[in-house]
Amino acid sequence: MVHISKKYYTIFFFITFLFQVSCQNHGKLDIITDIPSNLDENSGIQMFTSNSLWLIEDNGNKDNIYRINLKGEITRQFEVKNAKNDDWEDLAKDLEGNLYIGDFGNNGNDRKELTIYKLSNPEWEQGDKIEAEKIEFVYPEQKKFPPKKSKLLYDAEAFFHWNNFLYIITKNRTRPYNGKALIYRVPDKKGTYEATLIAEFEVCDNQDTCSITSADISSDGTKIALLTYGYLILITDFKFDDFSKGKKQLIDLGLRTQLEALCFKNDSTLFLSDEKSHLQGGNLYRLDLNKF
């Protein structure tokens, strides 16, 4: 019987692991790193410095924000005071450096009160906790909780900040699926509001790949990116408030994992992340928009 040392077993399994990773198909996305396993349910990302990103997780996880570097290591975290993670679904930031947490996940369309938490720039904070102000809102068009299946339009996982307002793009859960999304607007100041309905538009008709899971706007205000499970909708040549009338480019990312978050690194590059599910995903990616 041939004896193989533990050392060679280790080398063999390491080479096998590298081979498996290299053979994974990431479509049009360039993989940067894997996300820490305790952040498998990451649902929002934003960037403040060139070498790190802030993340949140969604329903059932801690009331925390986390900073990771581009090696996938957690380098800092804060408990968010005056906040509760009912269903945190996206992160946004403004040009002054404030960070916004969208606590508006609403799978069953039965939440009567929704919240966006406004935080100061986390890069400036000390200690292990960070204060939050509440921006509370309702959708005035929703009359029943939940509405009938054909009106399940009031879940949301995507928003961005522009010019003193937060723009929320809803996630469609209608049965039968009709591919529509709503755009709402709320002020970026502490208070309680009725969200203003800006527009209704059709994304596409495939439920598996058309529901919007994250959004961001470039710092120069010329591009809006909407993420779905496998596609990117890039909007240009638009005017506010109804940016849905702009030019839309549908980009097949070539990946069908649970893509949940995106943010602009610069005006031509995006960072994206997906949840870890069924041994797939859990990664941080980069997408160069100049390729399209």
Rank of each mutant, 00 (worst) to 15 (best):
Y117P: 06
V138M: 13
K223Q: 06
T192A: 02
F137C: 06
V80K: 11
P176Y: 13
E141G: 10
Y154S: 07
D40K: 15
L166N: 01
L18K: 03
T269V: 14
I251L: 11
K71G: 05
E194A: 04
I116N: 04
K291M: 14
E141L: 15
E202G: 13
D220M: 04
E123T: 08
N109K: 12
A156P: 00
E73M: 14
L234E: 08
E123R: 09
K144T: 13
L91S: 10
L53K: 04
F19I: 15
I233N: 01
Y285A: 03
E194S: 08
S52P: 03
F201H: 13
S37L: 13
I68C: 12
D267G: 07
E41T: 11
F160Q: 10
F243R: 04
N178S: 04
N266T: 08
V203W: 02
E202H: 08
V2G: 05
L29E: 06
R67T: 06
E157Y: 06
R67Q: 15
S219F: 07
L279F: 09
R185F: 08
K239A: 08
I135Q: 10
S214E: 08
Y285R: 06
Y193G: 00
T170I: 07
G254W: 04
I74L: 07
S211I: 12
L289K: 11
I74F: 08
G27Y: 10
F12P: 00
L232A: 04
K62M: 13
N163E: 15
N109E: 12
K112G: 14
L39E: 03
F12Y: 13
I74K: 07
N107P: 01
N206F: 05
G230F: 02
T33W: 06
K190A: 14
G72D: 10
G281R: 06
E194Y: 09
I101S: 02
T196Q: 09
Y177V: 00
S52I: 02
T257V: 12
N121Y: 14
V21K: 13
P187N: 05
K151Q: 15
F19R: 09
T196S: 04
K276I: 03
Y167A: 10
R67H: 11
Y100G: 00
R111H: 12
N172I: 01
